[in-house]
Simulated scan of single mutants.
Amino acid sequence: MSTLAPKKPAQKNKWLTFSATAVGAISALGILVLLARWLMDEPAIQGFVAEYPGNGTLPRDTPKGLPAWLNWQHFFNAFFIVLIIRTGWQVRTTTRPSGQWTRSNSGLLRTKRPPKKISLDLWLHLTLDTLWVLNGAIYIVLLFATGHWMRILPTSLDVFPNALSALLQYAALDWPLENGWIHYNALQLLSYFATVFIAAPLAIISGLRMSGAWPQSAARINKVYPIELARRIHVPVMAYFVLFSVVHVTLVLVTGALRNLNHMFAARDDDGWLGFGLFALALLAIIGSWFLARPLFLRPIASLMGKVSR
């Protein structure tokens, strides 16, 4: 008879790990806030914040206000990003896909190589990726055509000390003075720049390398840029988008929710409830799509683009 003690259930271990992680994260945040508040009481830091209040210098002709096209772009970007993260995680963790999809090898899609069978989750992930890239391309064109690039591209070196000042103020829970309708603070500017011009291209380039559209016969390129490197880039970039989204939504809600939501969803600068109502509708659309992204509803759509099998 064995004298070994019975192993703890895996589910209980997961909850213990999650609880310990949550307690550790909350404790770390508490220490960070206390440290930031202590620093903000120091004369040298107070002088630094007085000299660099958090807003970098922008060009004189920087557009003011947020146009309606930016509101629509913001919604579609959030919509696609949430579902891309969901399907990407499913592709990474699902061992037995609920369905398979094979591209139709006919018409404009005809190629010499036979179509490759992929999971239904991967088909949805790639389809959402394509729509997200298309939405991003439209955004970039409009951004530079209307001059709104000045709001998210650094044009002065004082953006960096101002960003550090804004970070200290956020950490101390003493929100920096800002008016998103006129300009973003320096930390917002740098974070939006990093998201649009660094994280998004990395997600696209690494995702393309991992997809079937990548030329497998290009031996020289594949040696310089192996698929293992693409995987090591793709997952951390996904984690960045999750972290950015959580921080972004949190700050929107705690630094003047109604005005911020009007900026982002209603193209107006006031404290009315229109932006909140449009935000609620957008949230319902995202949540509804999250639950509708199931094989029962996906199979009829996927079958329009290829063959679906169980």
Rank of each mutant, 00 (worst) to 15 (best):
R110E: 12
A203W: 11
L4F: 10
L298S: 07
L251F: 11
Q169V: 02
G207I: 03
W123V: 01
S104G: 01
S303L: 06
S245V: 04
D129W: 14
G136S: 14
M305V: 12
M264F: 09
S119H: 04
A171F: 11
L296P: 04
V252H: 01
I84F: 09
H183S: 15
G275A: 06
E42H: 15
P97S: 02
K112V: 10
G88M: 05
T95D: 10
K223N: 13
D270C: 04
K7M: 10
L261S: 04
N185D: 05
L16V: 10
S206N: 04
S119P: 09
L164E: 01
A219H: 13
L4C: 10
F80E: 05
G272Q: 04
L153A: 06
P114H: 00
G256M: 02
R299Q: 13
A213S: 15
G256C: 02
L120E: 04
V254C: 02
D269W: 05
F193K: 02
P6C: 09
T146W: 00
W15K: 13
L253F: 11
G180E: 03
G288H: 07
F291A: 03
K12L: 15
P295N: 04
V254A: 04
V141W: 03
T130Q: 11
H148A: 01
A10S: 12
